[in-house]
């Protein structure tokens, strides 16, 4: 059975249809890239798959759970790295990971081990006792990555995984995500970054206007004859997308 299953998903916010008939599946062992422009419905899809909001229509399934009717069970079994902000506020990273461990019913010893391992892996050992609110955004993102994996979930949902990270850590995280998915887990990555998707994903779904418009399987970083960028531009807005104005210096009289 698929690790993630979406069938005929629809969700509207008032008169705005954010997701309109989304369909796809993700298997274990896949690192699935969810690629699309702003407002394409990516975050709404993730929020539905993690039981944060109810769909208007359609069915979703994650690891044999139904996020719509059993959101807590779904969130117990998955890891989530949200796109927005920095939730832990005035806890230190060490305390925050203890908090996550308690909420997820993990043994304290296991949390301590995981905390040490993640702090070393992402290089925030020296910040373990600094208030989260006083960390740089990059350091906060590292802590949030750690919390998504601290319970070693079978499925992880990640919204923009590399935001605010320096190039060195970006490479580390990318390598980790690839190896994590290869260990019979499913990693679902929502991103705007086509290079990242092309670099690490095993399969990419391109979304536009609330629908999955195409999928592409990527083998060893090879996206086929047409680059992922070309495919994205073609499928998101058709030929018009190639005519987007370039950001050149404007030296005209009205500049």
């Amino acid at each position: 059975m698929a690790a993630i299953r979406v069938e005929g998903l629809r969700k509207s916010y008032g008169s705005v249809e954010a997701v309109s008939g989304m369909e796809f599946t993700v298997e274990r062992g896949e690192l699935y890239g969810f690629l699309g422009p702003n407002g394409a419905g990516k975050t709404t899809t993730i929020r539905t798959l993690t039981g944060q909001i109810r769909p208007d229509a359609g069915t979703v399934g994650v690891l044999e759970t139904d996020p719509t009717t059993e959101p807590i069970e779904t969130r117990r079994r998955v890891g989530i790295l949200p796109e927005q902000g920095s939730p832990p506020s005035f806890l230190t990273p060490r305390e925050y990971l203890e908090f996550v461990g308690e909420v997820r019913d993990l043994r304290p010893e296991r949390v301590a081990d995981q905390t040490a391992a993640w702090a070393e892996r992402l290089g925030f050992e020296s910040k373990l006792d600094t208030l989260h609110t006083d960390l740089s955004r990059g350091q906060q993102q590292k802590v949030m990555i750690a919390q998504a994996f601290v319970h070693e979930p079978d499925v992880v949902f990640i919204d923009e995984p590399l935001a605010n990270l320096d190039p060195l850590v970006q490479e580390q995280v990318k390598r980790f995500l690839v190896s994590y998915a290869a260990g019979d887990n499913a990693v679902f990555v929502s991103t705007h970054n086509i290079d990242v998707a092309e670099d690490i994903c095993t399969r990419v779904g391109i979304v536009a206007d609330g629908q999955l418009v195409t999928e592409r399987t990527i083998t060893d970083g090879d996206a086929g004859d047409e680059s992922l960028l070309e495919l994205f531009l073609d499928r998101v807005n058709g030929a018009d997308a190639r005519d987007v104005p370039t950001l050149e210096r404007m030296d005209g009289p009205n500049a």
């Binding site: 929020r47 993690t50 944060q52 807590i72 969130r75 117990r76 790295l81 949200p82 902000g85 909420v103």
Partner: peptide, 8 residues
């Protein structure tokens, strides 16, 4: 929203 990433 902050809490909806946890199983609570």
């Amino acid at each position: 929203e902050d809490y909806l990433t946890y199983p609570v």
